[in-house]
Design a protein around this nucleic acid. Structure first.
Lengths: 357, 357
DNA sequence: TTGAAAGCGCTAACAT
DNA sequence: ATGTTAGCGCTTTCAA
């Protein structure tokens, strides 16, 4: 049996490559790192030797010697949801291009105090950190900032600090969705909030209120129910909304997942979507297109957010001068089949049409 | 400004700890690795020194020196779906206990040939690999096996090789679900398959057929439609099934996600669940409980599968003699609200009841 | 443009 | 039970 890998067996090292190519290990290292001061022909010889020998760089040694680890960490709250999946897809794409690997950390994993946690993360294992929608990033940020460790916040703009982050135009997106509903003729629009400790949830509620105000519709607190971005929240919220003496003709859920809950509740009330109640979501996760009727929603460019954040992080890693920036990507209203004018407006339209004839 | 971490700044090393504790670096290393032959009092002194100095182990150095990297890799086909999320949850739990980190690899990321890919994975970065439902694991397995690199297959039993794997009793689970439907009185049961290149999909179809046969119901190929575990497959499949001259009274989807598609289709036909059509799924992902009506399904212990696989992998890493095993975890029928006896049977029951009176 | 040499922080023989 | 020593594979001064 061949010796087990990772034991004391001999791997192909830059020494071997150097010998094969007739150069020094240093030169091989230079080629490896795409540095200058290597004559093209030597570079070529090194490259050939590498492929011939099947050389694979040892990241451990590389980073131990003071180079980069070529690994970035992703601190994520919840894996296994489309929202996260889409963002990771974007991250991975950039990482492949940059020859980087991804270390996955879930926030709920440890009970140890944050400082130690971050210390572990930053201690050589990774060159930088991507923080995906952390509930309370302050704990990490402080330590990260102090150590001048590269990081980028994804979809988190609620903090006052001027830290590197990429998010979407939550307020505007929410405004657009609400305005769309209003323009369809809806006047009583229910709203299911997201986790209000999150900036994006607050922004979405703000956008809703702003659109109402701009269209001269009084804000009715009774039409707002609190949720936490989960499907059951949408279900419960819509049930409450539909039980109102004067129920809404449309319901806006702060994310697609809770919109699915809303759809279930509407149907459980024996009502149809969109004939009886219009439903609109936020995010445009893949399921939004797969559900029936197709969910009209506000598209967040999740994948692109992941990409941009990664690019920003990578740039920080390469260039210590660059400290990142705050980017807001535009949202976009994706119209599918879950919304239409309310009954009253439709009848009105019919009447008008008849008159026109 | 403090120097940027990971640059040439001085980190606390075992040398520092050794000095502080008045022992040799080796002893510190022994404490670090929970090895024997260290007197309790010295161990205590080392531990104190560590916390006092805020020592954090450097994994890179550790694995470079021939020890373990304390990282395992997870090769996953699709992140961002509950199925994967649940399994990862289980993996993480075990990893935390073992002080291991998780490296995430997605199968679609690279176009480079598999051998190089695996070489990269196995080259020191990770101590072992978890393969989550790879479509064609052969490419990896061969190389892995050859290098005697620790790995465990999760939810993949279709290969003939006797390789370490943990899966669920797909065939039995499917049998149970079908039998349940039959016992409710259903005779025409539609079946939406999964991705048939996957062993688990084949097993589930087998279980369906076996249950039919055992209950003296002829297998009708017209009642089986092919899918790929996706929601639109369930939708299309159910549409086809319901358009049949003699449509099924119940539909069994090979996984919950496609069952959601089935539910949509049933409702789009103006039919109710479970009054008109019963629907049953497979997996028991969290959404199955959040949907309305609650989806009756076959529970796969996903989280536990992740845990067991991880434990098996960790054991392989620690003990080179142990080469792993094949484990099948039992599935369990979770009854919610999406199934009930078919109309005919219900009427029949009513009649019988009346007679009994 | 190239190479020699000195570590990075740790583990693992091999002493003792 | 503990310490000494020699690397692991690479990057990085520094010198040529």
């Amino acid at each position: 049996m061949p010796p087990r890998k990772n034991s004391r067996s001999h791997n192909v090292t830059i020494m071997d490559v150097a010998r094969e190519a007739g150069v020094s290990p240093t030169t091989v290292s230079r080629v490896l790192n795409n540095q200058d001061h290597v004559r093209p022909d030597k570079r070529a010889r090194v490259l050939t030797a590498m492929t011939r020998l099947g050389y694979v760089v040892n990241q451990q040694a590389r980073s131990l010697a003071g180079g980069r680890s070529h690994v970035i960490g992703l601190l994520v709250h919840e894996v296994g949801v489309s929202y996260t999946g889409e963002i990771i897809r974007g991250i991975e794409e950039e990482l492949v291009a940059a020859q980087y690997e991804l270390m996955l950390y879930t926030t709920h994993r440890r009970k140890t105090k944050e400082s130690t946690y971050v210390a572990t993360l930053t201690r050589g294992m990774t060159d930088g950190l991507l923080l995906l929608l952390p509930l309370n990033p302050q704990a990490y940020l402080e330590s990260l900032h102090q150590e001048r460790f590269p990081y980028v916040l994804i979809d988190h703009q609620g903090t006052n600090e001027a830290c590197p982050a990429v998010a979407a135009t939550n307020r505007q997106g929410s405004y657009d969705a609400t305005a769309y509903l209003i323009e369809l003729g809806h006047r009583r629009i229910g709203f299911v909030t997201g986790e209000m400790r999150l900036g994006c949830a607050v922004d979405r509620l703000d956008g809703y209120k702003a659109a109402l105000a701009d269209h001269g519709i009084a804000f009715d607190p009774a039409l707002v129910v609190e949720g936490h971005f989960q499907q059951p929240d949408g279900y419960a919220g819509a049930n409450a909304l539909l039980a109102l003496p004067d129920p809404p003709t449309a319901i806006f859920a702060s994310n697609d997942v809770s919109a699915f809950g809303v759809m279930d509740a509407v149907r459980d009330h024996g009502l149809r979507i969109p004939e009886d109640v219009s439903v609109i979501g936020f995010d445009d996760i893949p399921e939004a297109a797969h559900v029936h009727p197709g969910l009209t929603t506000v598209r967040q460019p999740l994948e692109q957010m992941g990409r941009l954040a990664t690019r920003m992080l990578l740039r920080q890693i390469k260039d210590p001068e660059y400290t990142g920036e705050r980017i807001e990507l535009p949202t976009e209203l994706v119209i599918r089949q879950s919304c239409q004018p309310p009954r009253a407006a439709r009848e009105h339209t019919t009447v008008r049409r008849k008159r026109l004839k």
